[in-house]
Simulated scan of single mutants.
Amino acid sequence: MVAPPARPAGGWHEAVAFDGPVDLATRIAPRITAATVLGDPVLAVLAHEERGALRAVLGDTADHVRFLDPADVHTVPPFTVAVGWARTNRWITEPGGRALVVGQHLEELPGCGPEYWARLDIALDVATADLPVTVLCPFPTAAPQTLVHATHPHVGTDEGVTGGLGYRPPHEAVIDFPPPPPPDLGRPVAHRPFDLDTLAEVRGTVTTVACASGLAPEDVADLVLAVNELASNSIEHGPGAGVLRMWDLDGDVVAEVFDGGHVHMPFPGLTLPPPEGERGRGLWLASELCDVLQVWSEPGDGTTMRLTMNRERVSRPAP
């Protein structure tokens, strides 16, 4: 058992056991205070009671913490949440700074069962691997700990910090937690097959639907560029053709690109590929431009790439 390093090299992802709101606040308040003293950005996504207890213990220091409601944060897929938390490194303003994220596991949230949290934790290890970001994941000591240990490289208890028992690297662990199948969104407002000769028409369709939906002009431009990247990938690296479908939903514009190929990437769009990499940059750019990127790919079943743009752009923590 050891104490966690104050300034780790790269990402630090730790599960923190606690016995109640006050106990949790007592455990993490010193680490939050130390971060704020150094000018580090701090994001906390906690349930109401835990949030109140932490504010009480922190006192005026709480004014330097960004508190977000878990019910808002976890309305998007876990990979999207992981990307948002990794991007807290962009909030750093001091040389040598680190971002600190406290994200509580709350299985009572709609659609957030054990598989959701496992996918989030696995994705966090990928998204924050080389970034100055510390993620603390509070969990009750009475909760089953097998999955917590298996998806966290570090686990903190009363005795100190140890390695997660049975922890597996993300590329191995994610195999056991595939994404749920793409939900049926009903009849699309646009349906257009495409190939190289009709790529310009795809951009025109996206522009028409996005403008009619009420998206801001800059968001329309981002969505057009994102869809163009995905469709271009289908043409250049996939089967050479695909299908665009779009939906105008309550608050969201959704664009989906389907082709008959297979994406051989367990974490599509989660991180920027290395400069020498030939694949993945289009997916990463699409993830940067839109609020949600989801990819489902199975050999023989084709690949579905779905982009969501929220009219209010509220699905990610804003810098």
Score class of each variant (00 low, 15 high):
Met309Phe: 03
Ala15Met: 05
Pro182Leu: 09
Ala127Arg: 01
Ile235Pro: 12
Val73Thr: 13
Pro77Ile: 10
Pro275Tyr: 10
Asp219Glu: 15
Leu100Pro: 04
Ala53His: 04
Asn233Glu: 14
Leu24Gln: 04
Ala221Leu: 10
Tyr167Thr: 06
Phe18Lys: 05
Ala62Glu: 03
Asp248Leu: 00
Pro8Gln: 07
Ala143Ser: 11
Gln294Ser: 14
His149Lys: 05
Asp158His: 12
Arg203Phe: 06
Val155Ala: 11
Asn228Glu: 15
Cys112Ile: 02
Thr128His: 04
Arg119Ala: 05
Phe18Ala: 12
Ile92Asn: 10
Thr61Val: 15
Gln104Lys: 14
Val83Asp: 08
Ala9Ile: 01
His48Asn: 02
Glu278His: 09
Pro299Arg: 11
Pro5His: 07
Thr33Val: 05
Val2Gln: 15
Gly238Lys: 06
Leu283Asp: 01
Asp72Cys: 03
Trp12Ile: 00
Val45Gly: 01
Pro95Gln: 11
Pro179Asp: 09
Met246Tyr: 07
Pro77Ala: 15
Leu272His: 09
Glu229Val: 03
His48Glu: 15
Arg87Glu: 12
Pro193Ala: 15
Pro169Met: 01
Leu165Lys: 05
Gly160Thr: 02
Gly96Trp: 15
Trp296Tyr: 05
Glu288Gln: 15
Pro217Ser: 07
Ala118Met: 04
Val73Ile: 12
Arg311Tyr: 12
Leu46Ser: 09
Asp248Cys: 06
Leu199Gln: 04
Asn233Ala: 15
Ala150Ser: 12
Ala255Val: 03
Asp69Cys: 03
Leu223Arg: 05
Glu115Thr: 06
Phe194Arg: 06
Gly97Asn: 11
Asp130His: 10
Val42Tyr: 00
Pro8Tyr: 08
Ala210Thr: 02
Pro275Ser: 12
Arg66Lys: 05
Arg203Asn: 12
Thr146Tyr: 01
Val161Trp: 13
Ala44Glu: 02
Pro180Val: 03
Pro70Met: 07
Ala99Asn: 06
Ile175Thr: 10
Phe267Ile: 04
Val148Ala: 04
Glu159His: 12
Arg7Gln: 13
Glu298Cys: 13
Leu244Thr: 10
Trp12Pro: 00
Arg281Val: 13
Val220Cys: 07
Arg279Ser: 05
Leu100Met: 13
Val314Pro: 00
Thr198Tyr: 09
Ala226Thr: 11
Arg187Leu: 06
Pro169Lys: 01
Gly269Phe: 01
Leu124Phe: 10
Ala200Glu: 15
Gly302Met: 06
Trp117Thr: 04
Val22Thr: 12
Val174Ser: 04
Gly84Ile: 05
Arg87Asp: 10
Val174His: 03
Asp176Met: 14
Asp222Gln: 11
Ser315Val: 01
Leu196Pro: 00
Asn228Gln: 15
Gly240Cys: 15
Val2Cys: 03
Val37Tyr: 06
Val76Leu: 15
Ala3Val: 06
Gln145Ile: 02
Thr205Gly: 00
Val257Phe: 11
Asp63Pro: 00
